[in-house]
Amino acid sequence: MEINATQHPMDKYLRADRIPHIWCPGCGLGIVLNAFLRAIDELKIDLDKLAVVSGIGCTGRIAGYINTDSYHTTHGRAIPFATGLKLANPEMKVVVISGDGDLFAIGGNHFIHAARRNIDITVIGVNNYNYGMTGGQLGPTTPLGARTTTSPYGNIEHPFNLCHVAHAAGAVYVARWTVLHAVRLKNSIKEALQKKGFSFIEVIAACPTTYGRRNKMPDALDEMRFYREHSVIKHGIDPAEANIEIGKEIIVGKFVDIEKPTFNDAVEELKRKVKKK
């Protein structure tokens, strides 16, 4: 017999008074949150020294559920907020968790520049192919041909390959997983959190309510089964080769893991050099 419980082992990292969360049944965001908390747990990261920053949207709500210093900022601006926070308070571990629209449409400019500077933060970008919270509009990652509320005849725009963007902009760690790869995702988050510099993890997540049902995957399970059948792990592949197209395989894995001096170290070095006695 299963045992009825009222407390979950991850509750200690959650703002328990805010659970249940707002996400729809089958939404991948809960899995991302779970994987993040388990990564924190396994690394034994001091929650007093962790800051989670989100932008706006369904993913933007993640910050508010984690029992740490959490910042729910304006649409697209999580990364510059995190940049300021990390620079002002270098002892904090700063993580941005936000959605594809927030990070790559309205906030796209900030993403590439933070990666270029190699700001010492981790960005977890949840890609559900659309703007969920506002009702399923076309986003910067919506695959070509996909139906959304603002592409009712099928998307005619070419989407971003987020990992390729991150790599091209200079991120030192780039990985992609689907939410079905929950264990690998958790391990990847652990690696990213320990990585110095701008690390980026793209998580492909189901959005049954506003994306799936318009794209022949009305149930979250349909999307999850698709991940099971059509994702292929290719570590170390050039992210440029990992485009996402409707009906095609989803290439996942760790694509980039390099070393590069961070902006934060450069700032500290500069301070040491020019500081007035």
Binding site: T73, P80, A82
Partner: peptide
Amino acid sequence: PQEGGVFIQMEDEIASIAALIGASW
């Protein structure tokens, strides 16, 4: 930097004020 502070030139003004709010927190 001489005073032990941080200067950063951001990619635009939106980023600048967002960074300020982050730094203040």
